[in-house]
Amino acid sequence: MEKTILLVEDNPDDEELTLRALRKANIVNEVFVARDGQEALDFMFCTGKHAGREGQAIPGVILLDLKLPKLNGIDVLNRLRSDPRTKLVPVVVLTSSSEDEDMLRSYQSGANSYVRKPVEFPAFAAAVTQLGIYWMLLNESPPKG
């Protein structure tokens, strides 16, 4: 089964730019978008508006913004890591913040990677492209338990 990507992003501009960068990099894997922390959890645990999604494959990577409505990125990360079903899902924190504290808390909460969104689009596109290639093509997902 093809790997999928879950993009957790509340900013529609960033969402579109990310999707565009992936498209431009010819990464054709399916991308699901959650627009706040709660939706991301609903998606992962098949609850709320994502109920009935049971049985479908879990994403190969989650691109997680930190500053989100309702539940923020760190909360989402903590919930994912405390549940056996999602404990091992690769999570890449993709955020505008370059604060040491955000970085530290992300890693402490079990992020696999921390990537800063560059302001200049070419750099941003390059970062997203590399992420897509790495997590979709190079990285091996954890074995299903």
């Binding site: 900013n11 501009d13 960033d14 730019l17 565009r20 930190l66 500053k67 955020t95 505008s96 913040s97 370059s98 604060e99 969104k117 560059p118 302001v119 200049e120 689009f121 070419p122 941003f124 596109a125």
Partner: peptide, 22 residues
């Protein structure tokens, strides 16, 4: 404030730059 500057002021810039490039 710093935190929101760090997060929020950058996002619109990225949009301007990104869509300009687009």
């Amino acid at each position: 404030f710093s935190y929101s500057v760090s997060h929020d002021l950058r996002a619109p810039l990225r949009s301007i730059d990104g869509f300009g490039q687009a």
